[in-house]
Design a protein around this nucleic acid. Structure first.
Lengths: 231, 231
DNA sequence: CGTCGCTTTGAATACGGTCAATTTTTGTGG
DNA sequence: CCACAAAAATTGACCGTATTCAAAGCGACG
């Protein structure tokens, strides 16, 4: 499963095959940036000037279409890198990154980055790996949305989110993100109404318990079945 | 527009900022591989062992879903790299690459690649850029399919293909690819029937002329309007 | 306690999918 | 060169999923 957040900075793919000492040196070149809920790290189409690693808080990555529609591509939780396009030259951010709560991130500016890539070529190789994972994820999500119906896509998304941020509770796995029906709809490419109906149905089947911006998975296996079963 | 094929090898993003001499050295380490129509360069989920640059022919990149459905992610034409995941360690191909006609490609195996990346760190940076473009393309296509209806998606795809491989003829721009209705359907995430109906409608409006595995764009502006207009 | 935002639910509708039958095109072999 | 088979494309009828619009319910928070 791609984009699993890691718990320690040193475990980031970006630092693969680097020594503790090298990682320490790289980390020293970062600055810390705190931002408030609602603020943006960057906006879609801005020149990609910095690369981030989120260490605290939650960040939404969204993309707007020409006609003003919006889709939610991902929720970033600690510790996960974002804005990796900045590792390439002369790119613009393909998404906007907005803090959903107070956040802290490590930031490397463009010039620092290119120095780092010069000194630690392995970082570039690691960056390729990160990007490769992104490509895979989106190719797969593209394929999914092109071939699967809403119910299945939603089941997959919820399982994915549970995997990413789920916390075990006595009654089941809770998705620890404040996601509205609208947010979920934007993630799977449907409407908030269809999401609401689907969740209600699952709730009546005892699979989940849904609340306001909250989902508790009572019976994961049931969801998996919906996500994978034939037809 | 990402993935524009280039006409000369030296213009590949992969070779950005390298000298003629360096490029020559890199090219010397490639071997040439010819394959027949129908054969595969690699299959989805195979370990990514080589990176390719197509110099002759046409290659289809497809992805299968668990339940056997298939979608066509891209048609590769010369000169375009594919299988770039091999530039990252320990990845598997996310797609299958099948020759649609007799093809020639330059091939770099995994071990050669990592030597090259060591000698020419700039190549890794360039690879990041390539991957970044892929990510952008698929994020955008994902957003499109999630928010736009079939007619618009199809219009966009045809314009994209025309941009990529279109050849001017006295009567209009011809998409120079043997794409069946089924192929187009797989690319935009719909059925061959809907594609057929939509093309017929456009034909009756004088926008295009459609034939068996052939599309001639008579009135590009009309398509652009469908691709971009509000609502 | 009232307002605001999120959520639910119903009814009507439309877009696009499915299935079946037919036509057109292409390529092949006699 | 023609005839025939195979593949691709078209078209119609029907139907189902998901969207749209409207209205009402619920919960959080000042």
């Amino acid at each position: 499963m791609p984009f699993q957040p890691v718990s320690r900075l040193e475990d980031l793919t970006l630092f693969n095959k680097l020594t503790e000492e090298e990682i320490r040196q790289i980390l020293k070149t970062a600055r810390q940036q705190h931002i408030q809920a609602g603020e943006f790290y960057f906006m879609q189409d801005d020149p990609a000037e910095a690369f981030y690693v989120l260490t605290k808080g939650k960040v939404r990555l969204t993309q707007f279409t020409a006609d003003g529609q919006q889709i939610l591509l991902r929720i970033i939780v600690p510790v996960t890198p974002f804005g990796a396009v900045a590792l390439a030259d002369h790119e613009t951010y393909p998404v906007s990154a907005q803090a959903v709560e107070a956040c802290t991130a490590l930031v490397w500016g463009k010039t620092v980055l290119s120095q780092l890539l010069g000194r630690f070529p392995q970082m570039a190789v690691n960056a390729v790996k990160i990007m490769a994972e992104h490509v895979q994820e989106f190719q797969q999500r593209f394929t999914e949305i092109a071939t699967q119906r809403v119910e299945r896509r939603l089941a997959r998304m919820i399982l994915r989110l549970a995997h990413q941020t789920g916390v075990k509770t006595p009654r089941g796995v809770e998705v620890n993100l404040p996601l509205s029906r609208q947010d979920l709809a934007e993630m799977v490419g449907t409407t908030l109404y269809t999401v609401s109906r689907t969740l209600s149905q699952w709730e009546s089947q005892g699979l989940i318990q849904a609340g306001r911006e909250r989902i508790l998975i009572l019976h994961p296996h049931g969801l998996v079945k919906i996500a994978e079963e034939e037809t």
